[in-house]
Amino acid sequence: MKAWVIARKELGVFFTTATGYAGFGAYAFLMGLLFISALNRYQQLTQYYLSQQRPDLLETLNFNDTILTPMFSSGVWMFLFFVPFLTMRLFAEEKSGRTFELLMTAPVTSWDLVLGKFLAAGAMVVMLAAIPVAFPLILEAYGTAPGTGSSVEWSPVWSALGFTALLGLSFVAIGLWMSASTDSQLMAALLTFGILLMGYILPMIAGRLEGDWRVVLEYASPVNHVSRGIQGRVLLEDLVYFASITLASLFYAQRVVESHRWR
């Protein structure tokens, strides 16, 4: 399997240039901000309910629903900005730098190229998605909720992390496809950003519609699928959704790369 050779080279580029570290740093920093703001809100609510002598309301507060789920839900937006940067160079740089000729005349298939690059960028996005695991660990280490005495419930956390990663993988596949479709990294990033942004605004459009179109647009957007996962609901249809987006994009990327052999 030559895909692994490609993947190794790509990972090497991520980590020998500043791209990888800058990406991890920026993502960790921004997720940290989201965590702190959710934590502040949690503290304010706790103090407010305490001062109002409302133990019933205090019991509704827990780490998962009040801190982690909002943090993960906002965090999902982050990939909209990170993934285009991660994927834009994958094929576009090879083409503008003329190394594409090396890859296309080496004894490797188009699938090796596409899967190798997907493995590398996919590994990066999974690592990104894993960073926020630090926050529930901090919560668990330092506290329990005053209302219920409960700490972090882990199964929704795993589900949230897993669905964030699945979302990231499907975005990477789309970015890879766009990068294969153009010689320009900027163009690849803009196209990817445009498609991903579309995914996020579809539910807003759907909200104004009724009937079948509403159902279709809501299904097409990743927002609802990932939201359920973040809330800890693992549904087969959501897994199928992300797998379909990923596989279809990889398939198209392979077709685009292969088509260079026919021009």
Partner: peptide
Amino acid sequence: PVYLDMTVVGYLRFVARLK
């Protein structure tokens, strides 16, 4: 067809594996 961000030996190893 060289990668500017690779060392000479790193590049040659990559191509050797590809081949």
